[in-house]
Amino acid sequence: MTLMQPRDLTGTVVAITGASAGIGRATAEACVAAGANVAVGARRLERLDALADELGRDRVECVEMDVREPAGNARLVQAALDRWGRLDSVVPNVGIGSYGSILHMSDDEVADMVDTNVTGTVHTIRAALPHLLERGEGDVVIVASVASFRGGADEAVYAATKFAQQGLAGSLDRELREKGIRVSTVNPAGVETEFAIGRGRTEGDPALAEYLRPEQVAHAIVTVLQQPRSMRTQSWAFWPMGQQS
């Protein structure tokens, strides 16, 4: 029996949005540990700079950006190309959440969530895709949620944005598979991060200790990237052991 070895990520370049905290930061750490270089984007540049100092400036390129703006996504991709001359993978990770009735949020909050979670994901992919197509291979790994399959009773708008990401990924998979581009979604249950703190989650809530950890989601992302090019994961959903699915 021949065991399949993970694909070596050494020297590859991964662009990651929302990398200043939580899943995005953990993904940058995991990618660098696996040998990749990372271009990281977020609105909080000081946090990105701290991450680069921690992981090594030779392995990390920081870009202050907002995923809702096409120009910011273009800067992230260009920074990777300018620094390392290539782009192999992109991880659209930025997302915001809020828990409560569909009437709970203001109109502006609804628009912000849809624009960030859906339009922002589209802009990130559109910025990266021409360069992946030029290489003839690459990965798009969208950080979605188990809410994209069955939203809870207190997250209707959030679930709608995650359903949209699944639809986007499925359609892109059919569009791009024959061109060498793999499109995947990783779909964690609740993760103990800053996500939705003050918008239905409370900092320090003991229940958060039962959630997944950012490092576990990052492990899933890196595992998807390390698959042999002859296979692909369309969607991966996962929960902590103690949580009902």
Rank of each mutant, 00 (worst) to 15 (best):
P206W: 11
E175I: 02
N73Y: 04
V110E: 10
E29W: 03
N93Y: 02
L225N: 05
I96N: 10
Q234H: 11
Q216V: 09
A237H: 08
T202A: 13
R126G: 03
E178H: 12
N117T: 05
S245P: 04
P228K: 10
G97K: 06
Q243C: 00
W84Y: 10
L225G: 05
E203S: 12
R213M: 12
A147Q: 09
Q78H: 12
G56R: 09
Q78I: 00
D173H: 14
M231D: 00
T233V: 15
V183L: 02
R57A: 14
V91N: 00
L168W: 05
S230G: 09
P240L: 08
I16F: 06
P240F: 07
E175M: 02
P6N: 09
A71P: 02
N93C: 15
V60L: 10
E192F: 08
D173R: 15
I181R: 02
E46D: 15
G35P: 00
F238Y: 15
E64S: 15
A207G: 00
E178Q: 13
L87F: 06
H104V: 00
F149Y: 14
L103K: 10
G200S: 11
D49I: 13
L48K: 06
I125W: 03
V91F: 02
L55W: 10
G242F: 05
T161L: 01
M113C: 05
V77Q: 01
E175P: 01
L45K: 11
A160H: 07
T233W: 05
A128T: 06
D173Q: 14
M1E: 12
E175A: 13
A36D: 06
L55H: 08
S106Q: 06
A52E: 07
V13L: 02
A15D: 06
V224L: 04
V13W: 04
A218M: 06
I16D: 04
G100C: 03
A159I: 07
S184R: 01
T116E: 08
N73R: 02
L55R: 07
V114R: 00
V141M: 02
S171M: 10
P206V: 11
N187A: 11
G136L: 09
G18P: 03
P130G: 07
V114K: 01
T161G: 04
D66R: 03
G41E: 06
V67D: 03
M65C: 06
A79P: 02
D139K: 00
S101D: 15
R43W: 11
E192N: 15
R44H: 10
R25S: 06
T27L: 08
R25M: 13
T223L: 11
F238A: 09
R213I: 05
I125L: 04
A33W: 03
W236E: 05
R83S: 14
E215L: 04
D107E: 15
A30L: 09
D107P: 01
P188D: 10
